[in-house]
Simulated assay, not measured.
Amino acid sequence: MPLLEISIIPVGTDSTSFSSEVINAVRKLKEKELHYDVTPTSTIIEGDLEQLWQIAKEIHQEAISSGPNRVITNISIDHRKDKKTDMNHQIDTVENAID
């Protein structure tokens, strides 16, 4: 299943914090019942490709409409076709190799 990594950077705000953008994004993910993982610098979302494009667009639009005059949205998509995998499997593969 494809993975999308997204990070939102509001520019030109009065605060260096952008946790409110992350909170808004996570609320959207919960509403859509998408599997996700929040990291300190980005959020990883699992879903079909159309869902991922749509949620990335919604997260970006929410961030820009919440006040800043400029928002930088970085996304990365991991779309593997040769075998079925998911976030948990990828994490387990690394952690099992370490043990």
Score class of each variant (00 low, 15 high):
69 N>A: 09
91 I>Q: 11
5 E>M: 10
13 T>L: 05
74 N>P: 00
71 V>Q: 13
57 K>Y: 11
65 S>C: 03
38 V>G: 13
90 Q>N: 13
74 N>K: 05
96 N>R: 14
62 E>I: 11
32 K>T: 07
51 Q>Y: 10
10 P>G: 07
52 L>G: 00
99 D>M: 10
90 Q>H: 05
33 E>Q: 15
22 V>D: 06
82 D>Q: 05
55 I>T: 08
99 D>A: 10
70 R>V: 03
62 E>H: 10
42 S>G: 03
64 I>F: 04
41 T>G: 10
1 M>E: 06
56 A>T: 08
56 A>I: 02
94 V>M: 06
15 S>Q: 11
86 D>S: 14
70 R>N: 05
59 I>L: 13
65 S>W: 02
67 G>Y: 04
68 P>L: 10
60 H>Q: 12
15 S>C: 03
39 T>S: 15
63 A>V: 06
80 R>E: 06
84 K>E: 11
1 M>C: 08
66 S>H: 03
46 E>F: 02
10 P>M: 03
77 I>K: 07
27 R>M: 07
40 P>C: 09
51 Q>H: 09
24 N>Q: 15
5 E>P: 00
82 D>A: 07
16 T>G: 14
50 E>I: 01
66 S>I: 06
93 T>A: 15
79 H>C: 01
56 A>P: 09
18 F>Q: 11
78 D>C: 05
98 I>R: 15
89 H>W: 12
40 P>H: 07
88 N>C: 01
25 A>Y: 12
86 D>N: 15
70 R>S: 11
50 E>D: 07
68 P>A: 04
86 D>V: 07
51 Q>E: 14
71 V>F: 09
27 R>V: 10
19 S>G: 04
54 Q>V: 03
35 H>D: 11
42 S>V: 00
8 I>S: 03
43 T>Y: 05
82 D>C: 10
51 Q>R: 11
